[in-house]
């Protein structure tokens, strides 16, 4: 399978909000701005896959190993996006993070529940419990990248591109953000999926950024296409 982008993506030719960088992680494959950067035939454990990608990308950040799977996934997806397109020029307060998923933090909820199932061996731990909230992944992304703007975590059964687009557009319309990371980070059992996109007000150049990836128009249709593009 080719890593190139399907031709149906709507290109951005006007002064609109653009997706200037994106990453997709799905079970055994990682795509960044249309390129497959990692593929592994057989996945035994999802957490190991994330660690392998983390090492390949040489993202030196010891805290990564302390995170739960959802935070590892979202953190990695955000790092891959920001490696391609830096947000360093923005004020920390002008960058937002809006993420969504289906299972909230249920994967880690089950882990915390295991620690309290038996009153005879009761060992709840703060390092597990703190991850029983879906927005902790937003906190991890913010800490790493000094992002201090708007944040929200939305839950829907399946990816809701319309709501995400509406939410992020309102942040821009009300001048709450100048750039925003948004997407979907889902972990349950041994399956996972992440799609994280950086949205900016920048007008894309004719050849795109670095002459390779051309920013996509930020709209519901393109978000939905990215989610399907695995």
């Amino acid at each position: 399978m080719a890593g190139a982008m399907p031709p149906s993506f709507i290109r951005n030719n006007k002064m609109e909000r653009s997706i200037t960088s994106y990453s997709l992680l799905h079970d055994n494959k990682v795509i960044v701005n249309g390129r497959i950067i990692f593929y592994q035939e057989n996945i035994i454990k999802f957490a190991d896959f994330l660690k392998t990608v983390f090492k390949q990308e040489q993202l030196a950040y010891p805290k990564f190993y302390k995170m739960d799977t959802l935070s590892k996934l979202g953190f990695l997806a955000a790092e891959l996006v920001l490696k391609e397109k830096s947000i360093e020029g923005y004020r920390p307060e002008a960058v937002g993070v809006v993420l969504s998923n289906s299972s909230s933090s249920l994967d880690t909820d089950v882990a915390h529940n295991e620690t309290i199932r038996d009153r005879a061996s009761y060992f709840p731990s703060p390092s597990v419990f703190v991850y029983t909230l879906p927005n902790i992944v937003i906190g991890e992304v913010c800490i790493k990248n000094k992002i201090k703007g708007e944040n929200a975590f939305l839950i829907s059964e399946t990816f809701n591109g319309r709501l995400l687009c509406e939410y992020v557009n309102e942040l821009f319309n009300n001048e709450r953000v100048e750039a925003c990371l948004c997407g979907w980070v889902e972990v349950m059992g041994n399956s996972c999926q992440a799609m994280v996109a950086l949205v900016e007000k920048l007008a894309p150049g004719p050849d795109g950024i670095n002459g390779s990836f051309k920013p996509l128009l930020f709209n519901e249709q393109n978000l939905n296409l990215l989610m399907k593009h695995n």
Binding site: P92, E93, V97, P126, V130, I136, I138, G139, E140, C142, I143, N145, K146, I147, K148, G149, E150, N151, A152, R176
Partner: peptide
């Protein structure tokens, strides 16, 4: 409005 400390998760 919302904001993030970008400091510590707990």
């Amino acid at each position: 409005s919302t904001s993030n400390d970008a400091n510590h998760i707990s």
